[in-house]
Amino acid sequence: MAEAATNDDLQQSIRDDRYRLGQCPNCGTQLFKIKKKGLLNKTEVRKPLTTPGLVERGQCLKCLSSKPADVGVLAAAAIASVGEGKEEGDNPQPRAAQQQPNNATAGETVYIGDFNEQGERHGPGELLWSNGDKYVGSFVSGLRHGQGTLYFKDGSEYVGAWERNVMHGSGTRRFKNGDVYIGLYANGKRSGEGRFYFANGDMYYGNWEADQIHGFGRYYYNSGISFEGTFNFGRRHGKGKLQKRDGELEIYRYENNTRMDPGVRWSADRTKAWRLEGGRIKRSITIAEAVSIGYQCEGAMEDSVPVDDMHVPDVPNVT
């Protein structure tokens, strides 16, 4: 069991590395040309590539034609719609994860599959709604229960576990615009540990509650900046660390997405520090004073490592 978990972690690490390099997370095909922009080349711009028969405007043609249940393919779909990156400011805001319908819409249905002695849908089957939605998977006593796939009429889909007609357990949700969520559900909503690939190239990994980013997590911007800290229903709230592309680290306390003074900036080698007020450097400070400010920011003063080398640990399923 532990060996399987280790292998899963390794495969996810490989997919994340490919993602950062502009490659298809599933097969490694190059999907984007990455350029550096701005002062000291701090900002990345992703330009979608086209390779006849292989890649079409950043879309991996091979993987997009594979089975939807393949998690790696679904992760690749998140990269498929990435446009050119935008230069981020000093305090980039996290994107909101789009909402999702929990069930197919109402309408007449046609069922093809097995029944139990009571005449209820039971076992493997297909359920088609008149609006174009379709469910293919397991039924128990008339309800979607077990493993199944719900294809929505807009081309998006959910692949994963069901309990009494709602998404519940581990699943993957692919949206029409290319966003992809891979993680846990509870009563039809994203809850617990999950990973969200935004179509613009951003990625969040951490805790969720009621379909929103909530609790501890890490947010990786397509510019190369990363944020690690706590969220309150989609907004940064509590201690937070913002890692720059050049290795500099800023530590703040956040309230409702707003940085509260004072903050502290550490140099890339952690030998120099500056006091921050209003998002600007106030003055150079000693290491001892920087550590003290870090403690004021709820203890978020430990060193961080460059984003490219950061290993994402397991996140507990609590908020």
Rank of each mutant, 00 (worst) to 15 (best):
I213W: 09
Y252Q: 01
R265H: 11
G240R: 13
T230I: 06
S226F: 07
H168L: 00
I213K: 08
V180T: 09
G247C: 04
D269A: 02
G279A: 00
T230F: 05
G192H: 04
T286V: 05
A186V: 12
G247N: 09
R190C: 11
K282D: 14
W274K: 05
V291K: 11
H214L: 14
I293H: 06
E277Q: 15
D202N: 01
Y204K: 03
N257E: 14
Y197C: 02
A186P: 11
D269S: 02
G224S: 00
I213R: 08
R283I: 08
L249F: 12
G247Q: 06
E209M: 14
G192P: 05
F227S: 09
S292V: 09
N207G: 11
L242T: 02
T271I: 03
T286S: 15
A290C: 05
G278L: 00
I287T: 11
D269G: 06
R270P: 10
G206V: 01
Y252L: 00
K272V: 02
R174Y: 07
H237I: 05
F175T: 03
Y204T: 06
S267L: 03
G279R: 01
R195D: 07
F231N: 05
F233R: 06
R218Q: 15
D179P: 12
A273S: 14
L249W: 01
G247M: 11
D211C: 04
R173Q: 00
H237A: 03
G217I: 05
G279W: 00
N200V: 05
G171M: 10
R218L: 10
G183P: 07
I251M: 09
N222Q: 15
G279V: 06
W266E: 06
A273L: 03
A186N: 14
F233V: 00
E193L: 00
H168T: 00
N187H: 13
N207M: 12
A210F: 10
E250R: 14
N222L: 14
A210Q: 08
G201K: 03
R195H: 03
G240N: 00
T271A: 08
E255V: 14
G263F: 02
V291M: 12
R275Y: 04
G169F: 07
H214E: 14
G178F: 06
F196Q: 13
D246V: 07
Q243L: 10
R283S: 15
A288V: 10
V291P: 06
G247D: 09
Y197L: 04
Y221P: 15
N257Q: 15
P262L: 09
R270V: 13
F233W: 04
D261L: 07
L276E: 05
S170K: 13
A288R: 11
E277H: 08
R270F: 13
F231L: 08
Y219G: 11
G279P: 03
R173W: 12
F216Y: 12
A290N: 03
Y254Q: 04
Y221R: 13
F227T: 05
R280E: 11
G234V: 07
F233M: 05
R195K: 09
G178D: 05
A273P: 07
F196C: 10
N207T: 12
K189L: 13
N232I: 09
I251Q: 08
V291I: 14
R235I: 10
N187C: 13
I293K: 00
A273R: 01
G178C: 04
Y185L: 02
G201H: 01
L242V: 00
I293Q: 06
Y254E: 03
M203R: 09
Y197V: 03
Y205E: 11
P262E: 06
V264F: 08
